[in-house]
């Protein structure tokens, strides 16, 4: 079996859950097996059922007040019960904060190799060989996995959501869940904003934006494109934008469909975080800027002049 660790937000599955199920279904086909999706938390039956549309033939739901806090130790124990029960051979997580927190524990529990940040299907399943990026995107490597069980984390937006409808059988798993040993004393969640890792389109600004006060245009463009916002490292170091938006070698690694690099020079450490984007668009006054070597499309010019025009053009297109 292929086991998927899904994530939901207030009872609604995140898009990454559908993508993980789609990816899992494709691997299941290669391995001639099926997909079990694990849902943790309070998720309604029809929402659980929705995973069938992407190929989950079984959806297992665990709900317990002790799971309201993501205690990595307890989550790993919970997931491992499902691994045992369904005899899972491949366990899939999203390559986001939560996935990266729990996947290593599952890997160690089962002596199962952990391959993080995959984006494509295995090249073969017997032996199990899969490609991943290394050296922050500067190269890729084929990894041969020698353990019976494999744990993979998938880059969001790399595989896509693919429909492969089956009837999902819903099952509730009754487990005794320990009391968390960590205590949440404060939580802050941004609502209504597209999360950077989820975003299919990302509008990002660098030092060429000149000041944090100039971000209204970036936010506006992101909003009309239903995208997320990002920035280069100096921008977050200066406090123009929050650290969570910093992309690159020492920030987030993202793979949107379109990455707009506005006033970003394209340093090698920056490109490490964005080079998996399907299409890179650069606007920069300096025609020698390295970003133009990484970009698919570009304009040589002043972002302060071009951004407002770009917003108007996109508005026209969308209306």
């Amino acid at each position: 079996m292929i086991l998927i660790y899904t994530q939901n937000w207030d009872g609604k599955f995140k898009k990454l859950s559908y993508e993980l199920v789609s990816y899992g279904a494709a691997i299941a086909k290669q391995m001639n097996t099926e997909v079990v999706a694990l849902s943790i938390g309070n998720v309604a039956n029809n929402e659980l059922q929705s995973l069938g549309k992407y190929g989950a033939s079984k959806v297992v739901s665990v709900n317990d007040p002790n799971l309201s806090v993501v205690d990595n130790k307890i989550y790993a124990k919970t997931i491992s019960e499902a691994v045992n029960k369904y005899n899972a051979k491949v366990i899939l997580f999203a390559n986001n904060n939560e996935g990266k927190a729990i996947a290593p524990r599952i890997s160690a529990k089962f002596k199962a190799a952990l391959i993080t940040g995959v984006g494509k299907l295995p090249k073969s399943v017997e032996p199990f060989v899969i490609c991943k990026k290394v050296y922050t995107g500067k190269a890729s490597v084929d990894v041969k996995v020698n353990s019976d069980i494999k744990v993979l984390t998938l880059f969001q937006n790399s595989f896509g959501v693919v429909e492969a409808p089956v009837d999902a059988e819903i099952e509730t798993l009754e487990l005794t869940i320990d009391t968390p040993t960590i205590k949440v004393i404060e939580q802050s969640k941004s609502t209504g904003k597209v999360l950077l890792n989820d975003a299919e389109i990302v509008v990002s600004g660098g030092r060429g934006m000149k000041s944090g006060d100039n971000w209204a245009g970036i936010e506006q463009l992101a909003e009309i494109l239903n995208g997320g916002t990002a920035c280069s490292r100096p921008v977050s170091d200066e406090g123009w934008r929050p650290h969570g938006e910093h992309v690159g070698q020492t920030g987030k690694i993202i793979a949107p469909n379109v990455y707009f690099a506005l006033g970003i020079s394209g340093a090698i450490q920056h490109l490490g975080g964005v080079s998996n984007s399907k299409c890179i668009v650069a606007i920069n006054t300096d025609k020698e800027a390295p970003i133009f070597e990484a970009a698919d499309y570009g304009i040589i010019g002043d972002v302060h002049k071009i951004l407002p025009e770009l917003i108007e053009e996109v508005k026209k297109l969308k209306s």
Binding site: N72, K100, R105, S107, A108, K109, T116, Y135
Partner: peptide
């Protein structure tokens, strides 16, 4: 280098 993220979580487990 290898962009593995697991060392800490594995040690904990």
């Amino acid at each position: 280098d290898f962009n593995g993220v697991g060392v800490g979580g594995m040690i904990a487990e």
